[in-house]
Design a protein around this nucleic acid. Sequence first.
DNA 1: CTAGGGTTAG
Length: 673
Amino acid sequence: MKCMGKSCLNHVRLCSLFNTQCIKTRHFISTSTSKTGASTSIEEFTALCSKGHVKEAFKSFRSEIWSDTSLFCHLVQACILRKSLPMGKQLHSLTITSGCLNKFFSNHLLSMYSKLRESQTAITLFDHMPWRNIMSCNIMINCYVQSGDLDSARNVFDEMPQRNVATWNAMVSGLIQFEFNGDGLCLFSEMHELGFLPDEYTLGSVLRGCAGLRSLRAGKQVHAYVMKSGFKFDLVVGSSLAHMYMKSGSLEEGEKVIDSMPIRNVVAWNTLIAGKAQSGHPEEVLDNYNIMKLAGLRPDKITFVSVISSCSDLATLGQGQQTHAEAIKAGACSVVDLTSTLVSMYSRCGCLEDSVKVFVESESMDPVLWSSMIAAYGFHGRGEEAIKLFERMEEEGMEADDVAFLSLLYACSHCGLREKGLEFFDLMVGRYGLKPRREHYACIVDLLSRYGCLEEAEAMIRSMPIKADAIIWKILLAACKIHKNADVASRVAEEVLKVDPQDSASYVLLSNVHASAKRWEDVSAVRKMMRDKNLKKEPGVSWVEIKNQVHQFSRGDRSHPKSKEIDLYLNELTTEMKFRGYAPNTSAVLHDMDVEEKEDSLAHHSEKLAIAFALMNTPGGVPLRIMKNLRVCEDCHLAIKYISETKNREIIVRDSSRFHHFRNGGCSCGDYW
DNA sequence: CTAGGGTTAG
């Protein structure tokens, strides 16, 4: 009964379009409502359609096809569903040969070609249509947009004598899809001025445009409109709104929007979770993930991507493995996007072997996946493997993009492969024609300066076509410390502080350089500047995951419940290490203290506390995985070598820039970091 | 015509 009602509606619509066919149509209604004949035939017909037998289906309903749009729609749907272009073309030619190609049917065909990504045929059809209407133009705008031809879309748009809201939506969303966010928003206000009322589609696109521009101001205006309009409770609008706030750095506002939604679907949860993941709140990602599951929602591949990438930020291997297992159970692991995240997560959690395993099992020819594997090798100081992988990427015919190169350069710089790195940089600019971004220059500066070519690195910064930021100068400054070059350091520090006068880390670095060069007066001058500006050193924090529980330590921190035991253990350990020849390296200690104080200050660096705690709480032979927010200092690096030997343990430390694998008194970085 | 996600310098 329901079906017949719909069919009648179609007849009415059709009659208004083609007055001439009204009689025939009426006749059809009367036959098709009789119980026996038509309904079984319709079933046969749809069966034929779903099997893809267009010709047979067409024959079985030859006379009625042209009078009942729903039948024609079935045929078109069949073509789209089976993504069968030949079938669609057949249908198209049948329409022509039977002389029935009219306004209504050609719009359906147009939309079919557009959906089957056959834009060329759609264009030809459109160009030869004597009866273009708003609908056909709208379809065409979308067709051009999805093939990336925004100019042609705009042409159709501009030349339309009349438009409706869908027209504006198609053009606005097209512009915004291709990140012409500003243009999209301008078009939106034009539409608004002309009196077209935005609907939920418009609002979704426009909010996405605001998010792309990180424009809170525009976003808030749209928000105000949403509250007035009837789309306050629309799921799509709500998620877009929250997304806009979070992208623009207003995490709280975004959360408020999500909280106010009467129903939350997976996408709404994902918006919240991804927002937190991307703005550096990985703990909250895990919390929300658990709440979401408790609320009875099923995480999908996008949830898993955010959660697993948060596990890499936190370096919580246990949590990462567990989420990986959940993703497998949910059947989401065959997706390449997730594979890239997994490769990165295992690498950043210190398990390079597992990254390799995930990578090899996937075997997708996806440049992002390969980039993440190259980066993973680089992170672990395996420059040779990174280069080999890149070369294989070229052999397999994959187009290396700027990120692939970034990962590669990064690997070279961390492994001291100066020549190779410079060679790849030339390759990128020359043969690949890629324009280096600031990040690429940063890698090259890192490569040169770590290697000891401080002047060359400085010249590179001064000559590059992009304005240097504080980060790039700081890379050089850090290298000045390693190579104990106070002259370059003073010059460079000046540049850093020009760009970012509040950067405490630079003062600390500068003071360290002076200290290593034993320029004590300069040291106290820098420290006075810090005091005057009320700047404090960013505290070093280390953490370790034991039995799925994360324990965090910072220097001199006595807040851990086992703090006393840790101290005792650490003292014993230090004595044992000194017996084996360990001598604390106090050169990097900032304060004017006596030797004993300096040693004591070093002995309680956060990574040492974390290692001591981990040694006390894990059985012998289990590798330790320690994470640190800053770079490992020279003394800790030396001390951990001794610890690995004394306790016969493999200790894996992730600092702010890379991994160190300590084993039998040595480190995988070869003291180059 | 409509929302959310992956790799990347320190």
